[in-house]
Amino acid sequence: MQNKTFRNLFMLPYALWIIIFVIAPILLVVYFSFFDINGNFSLTNYKNFFTATYLQMTLNSFWYAFLITVISLLIAYPTAYILTRTKHKQLWLLLIIVPSWINLLLKAYAFIGIFGTHGAANRFLEWAGIGSRQLLFTDFSFVFVAVYIFIPFMILPIFNALDKLNPSLLYAASDLGASKWTTFRRVIFPLTLDGVKSGCQVVFIPALSLFMLTRLIAGNRVITLGTAIEQQFLVTQNWGMGATIAVFLIIIMVGFMALTSIRRRGV
């Protein structure tokens, strides 16, 4: 009995947090999505969302997020794999992580300089004989910078999965006659799939909702769901429409989480 009062006392602030900052905000977003710009209850926002403009934007946002995730994965997997094979791998891993600790804005800002008309990237292109071109404010630069930012987050879970892999499994595979490629395809990759999945989760969902990069790097050429929400809330002041897009973003997010869900052992 005494135990329970003790526990309830502990849980009070935490429970308040769950109610006020987890449950209430979701309900409020859903609630606001049913009000048009004049504050009338209606389904206008949902009707609007299913018009070509918004669907096109959603599709675009998806496409970019997909692209960013796939490219990150293609770079991160081999990197993580090589990292697990190095001596002092924890140190190297730390060096991979350090850049992710630098403020996001500063990294984006660095690319404004690098991709600028006279920036390092263009000078390299000139030197290579390709000639300078407009880099900043293109979808290329957007994808590039996004991949740059997300790569450490993709490497980390894959590294952990690879690191946990029991080396005798690999010996067993080669003992049973598997080639290196077969071992990778049939043993290593399936066993690190959970790491890949959580890597995709931490990249895909934020990539859908990035808005700062689209403004700074893509110069509004790319509009993601995140940009649209920010636009509706802070520029147009149409909270209802913003909330509606947010509802769809949440639905997509939940769907994606379910799709890449990992069977976790209960805690």
Partner: peptide
């Protein structure tokens, strides 16, 4: 009970910044 609490706990971790920002603004 534990799993429910953990799921509620993790909602803010997985939800995109924009959603958090917008919903807190409303709140």
């Amino acid at each position: 009970t534990r799993n429910t609490l953990l799921s509620l706990n993790n909602i803010l971790i997985v939800s995109p910044d924009v959603i958090m920002g917008a919903s807190f603004l409303i709140l």
